[in-house]
Every structure is written in structure tokens, then in C-alpha cells.
Amino acid sequence: MRKGTSLPGISLRALAPNAVTAIALCTGLSGAWFALQGRWENAVAAIVVAGVLDAMDGRIARMLKGESRFGAELDSLSDVIAFGATPALIIYIWVMQDMPRFGWTISVFFVLCAALRLARFNARIDTDDQPHKSAGFNTGVPSPPGAGLALLPMLVWFETGQDWVRDYRFIAPWLLIVAVLMISNVATFSWSSIKVRRSFRFLALAGVGLFGATLVAAPWVALIGASIVYVGLLPFSIFSYAKVKRARKEPVLET
């Protein structure tokens, strides 16, 4: 071996984010295993942990400069399994199997929409013409929030014990709505599109702290609140993107 040459292989810098993605995949899929045992709270917790890991892997890759096409493909595969197939299986085992004829069909449709969303993302990954992305918005509801919204009725059931929530006549249309939102062209807020005014920064920090404290003391209440806030922000994200779109179309006056 020539002096100064390095051994072939993958550096730990490139491997670390992919390892986090793999853990997210396995953790999310474990939610289905918990559901098969009727351990509903553990099943939802597995999806939540997978969501946290999914939010970390991309940031770790950028921090370590370990981004790769392989990592992007693995991340998409992980998202389909952890936030598409697993939530659909949990909801099916929980209530949709009681729906005559179409319970499994609706559950499969949710998985299909998650896969189509991620296939669309991968197809556009090298495309320059992405109006939503260039403005800092997502196209449609991302898979992790989509999984959270799909499981929202279960969170309400955990907290309230109300049996009306555990009814396929309510769950089926809700699951369809969330599935369609994932593949829609609706502009939704991303982290980079949310701007906090300086005058509100302390209020924002207090809100984050309150959410963290609630997450420890009453996790289901915190997650229900986060889901409701996310849904409530959808009209504002559409309006905000419309403003950005109009500003881009306005002609620049030469001085």
C-alpha cells in the first residue's frame, strides 16, 4: 500500500446519519409489533420516537457533511415504513378491521399515498424548479406529521376514553383526508418558512418550554395540542405561500 493512501470504505461521518435513519425505521416498524399485542400506547410512542429520529438524521448529515444519495433513498424508505405502513397497520388493528369490506382498502390507500408522496420527493430531488421548496415550504403534509394526524383519534381516546372516537365511521374519512393531504399540492410550513418576530422570541421560547413540560407531565395532551396547532396552521401556510407567490410575480421597477 502506497504511503498516504487511505483504506477503501465508508467513513463514520457518512455512516452516522444513515445509522440514525435505520434506527428510526426499526423503531417505527416496532409500533406494529406493539399493536399486535394490544399495547396501543407503546405503538404510538414508537412512531413518536421514530419521528424524533427522522428529524435528527438530516441535521446530523448536514452537520457532519455526510449527505449522500444513498442516505436520501434510505430516509424515504424509512419514512414509508415508519410513517406510512406502520400507522396504517396500527389503525387497522385498532379499529379499521371492524369496518365491513373497505377497512383494509382505506388502510392500504394511506400507505399508497405515503409512498407516492416520497416518490414525488425523490423524483424532484435534483430539480431546480421547485416553487414550494425554494420559498421554504413543503408540498403537502410531510409523512411524519401525516402519521401523527392519522393517529390523532387514538391520542384522543387515550386521554378521554371516549368510545365514539374508536368508530370506523369517524376514523375512515379522517384517514382518507390525511392521506389526500399528504399527496396534495398544498403548501405547508417547514422549519425554514416559520419566522418569529424579535418582539415575540421570548413568548415563543416560553411556548416551547411549556410544550416540553406538558410532554413530560401529560404526553398525550401535548401531542393532541401539537396536532391541533398543525392543522390550524394549514390555512395560514396556504395564505403565506400565496403572498410569496404574488411577490415573485410582481415586476421589479428599474431605478
Rank of each mutant, 00 (worst) to 15 (best):
F109H: 09
N122A: 01
L112G: 03
T160P: 02
P131R: 05
K133C: 15
V141Y: 00
Q162G: 10
T127V: 15
G148W: 06
F121G: 03
E159V: 13
D126G: 15
Q162Y: 12
G148P: 08
T160Y: 08
A115V: 06
M154V: 11
R117A: 06
Q130L: 15
V108T: 12
L155W: 09
A150I: 03
V156K: 02
S107M: 05
Q130N: 13
T160A: 12
N138G: 09
A123L: 01
L151H: 03
H132D: 14
K133G: 11
G136A: 04
G140D: 05
G146H: 02
D163P: 04
L151Q: 00
I125D: 08
V111N: 00
P100D: 11
F109A: 09
N122Y: 05
P142M: 01
L116R: 02
A150K: 01
Q130G: 12
G103H: 08
G161N: 07
T105L: 14
L118S: 03
L155G: 10
S107I: 08
A150R: 03
I125H: 08
G136F: 08
F102I: 13
A114K: 00
F158S: 07
S134V: 13
A123F: 01
V156M: 11
E159N: 10
C113R: 03
D126I: 13
P142H: 00
Q130K: 15
W104F: 12
R117I: 07
P145I: 07
D98Q: 11
P142C: 00
R101H: 15
G140Y: 01
R124N: 15
F110S: 02
I125W: 10
V108K: 07
K133S: 14
L151M: 03
R101G: 14
A150G: 06
A114C: 08
D163F: 01
L155H: 09
R101K: 15
N122R: 05
T105R: 10
V111W: 07
F102R: 04
V108C: 10
A150Q: 00
M99F: 11
T160D: 08
G136R: 07
V111F: 04
F110D: 04
G136D: 03
P100K: 08
K133M: 11
L151D: 00
D129H: 07
A147N: 03
S134Q: 13
R101P: 09
F158H: 10
A119T: 04
P153V: 00
